[in-house]
């Protein structure tokens, strides 16, 4: 990152008694693909709405390029492409009419910037006469991205674009974002899916309106300080129950059909664990040492940040 194109400092926003985001600061380089990762309700949407000039921050400031999100909101609105969290295109307009409408209100035409959306729009172009309301989730998302891109914005703000979209479309979508990066477009994207974090250049892990950590995905995972094992057994529920009460445990997190287990003291593991599980009557026990993923790091950061609060 040779320059900081987007910069936020101490952004805070409350809605009545609820603090949506608190003291959020970060900077994003030009042409960077920057991800905000966190579960629902962590303030990602509020943060994006402040950046897209839809909300005013209570405290703090932010700018995109040289434009302040509060003072120069008109300039920003001309230069960003925004994809809102829920599908917000006109369902009673066809695919083509939606795209044309967004092109027109930004004073451009589909033809003028077709090169930008070709890769994305070509997937849905065969259905351009279809009403947007009748598209599948993946196609809606491609249309929304096309509409957000049609005016050649220098920044894209995508609020949970892959939520509610099938796995194949999600992968395709991230491929498209990588292509867009080549055009020099700065992309901010939020997602609750931890596995998508590794597809970003850098990520901010968010929890309860705060940013816990900002770094490249590789740097975040390499900082995981503990030994970690993926544990499998015949009955996953019983396995979880038994792990929860195992003495030498630091953290126990279910991941689909496996459980990620970090011991408090790695010296005796995983042999101690295997013996314990055998003594509890588990069959088909498999314990493998693994590298921590983003989700493991997230869980660790989350428990660490929660502990001081409960005191």
């Amino acid at each position: 990152m040779d320059e900081s194109f987007i910069e936020a400092a101490g952004l805070t926003k409350t809605f009545g008694p609820i603090t949506a985001i608190s003291d959020v600061s970060f900077h994003v380089g030009k042409g960077e693909l920057f991800g905000f990762i966190g579960p629902d309700g962590t303030g990602k949407t509020t943060l994006f709405r402040i950046l897209t000039t839809l909300l005013l921050p209570d405290k703090g400031s932010a700018r995109i390029g040289s434009h302040d999100v509060v003072k120069n909101f008109r300039e920003i609105r001309k230069n960003i492409g925004y994809m809102a969290g829920r599908f917000s295109l006109y369902k009673d307009l066809t695919v083509e009419e939606n795209l044309k409408f967004y092109a027109t209100i930004f004073d451009t035409t589909i033809e003028e910037n077709y090169h930008l959306i070709r890769n994305i729009y070509s997937h849905i172009e065969p259905f351009k006469k279809r009403l947007a309301g009748n598209l599948s989730g993946g196609m809606k998302q491609k249309l929304a991205l096309s509409c957000a891109l049609i005016h050649k914005p220098d920044t894209l703000v995508l609020d949970e674009p892959t939520t509610g979209v099938d796995a194949v479309s999600r992968r395709e979508f991230w491929e498209m974002l990588k292509e867009l990066k080549k055009e020099g477009i700065t992309i901010l994207v939020s997602t609750p899916y931890m596995d998508e974090a590794s597809l970003c250049d850098r990520v901010a892990l968010m929890q309860s309106g705060r940013i816990m950590e900002i770094d490249t995905p590789a740097a975040i995972t390499s900082q995981y300080p503990y030994a970690l094992f993926a544990v499998r057994a015949g009955n996953i529920n019983l396995l979880l129950n038994d792990l929860e009460v195992y003495e030498n445990r630091r953290s126990v997190q279910p991941f689909g059909q496996t459980v990620h287990f970090a011991p408090a003291n790695a010296a005796n593991e995983p042999e101690g664990l295997r013996k314990y599980l055998e003594s509890r009557g588990h069959s088909g026990i498999r314990i493998e040492p693994i590298h921590a993923g983003i989700e493991d790091c997230f869980m660790m950061l989350m428990t660490n940040s929660e502990q001081p609060k409960t005191e």
Binding site: L54, Y82, S88, L89, I105
Partner: peptide, 13 residues
């Protein structure tokens, strides 16, 4: 209600 106002607002209209 449909959320399209959100996108309309983030435009030069």
């Amino acid at each position: 209600e449909l959320g399209t106002m959100e996108v309309l607002l983030v435009s030069p209209l």
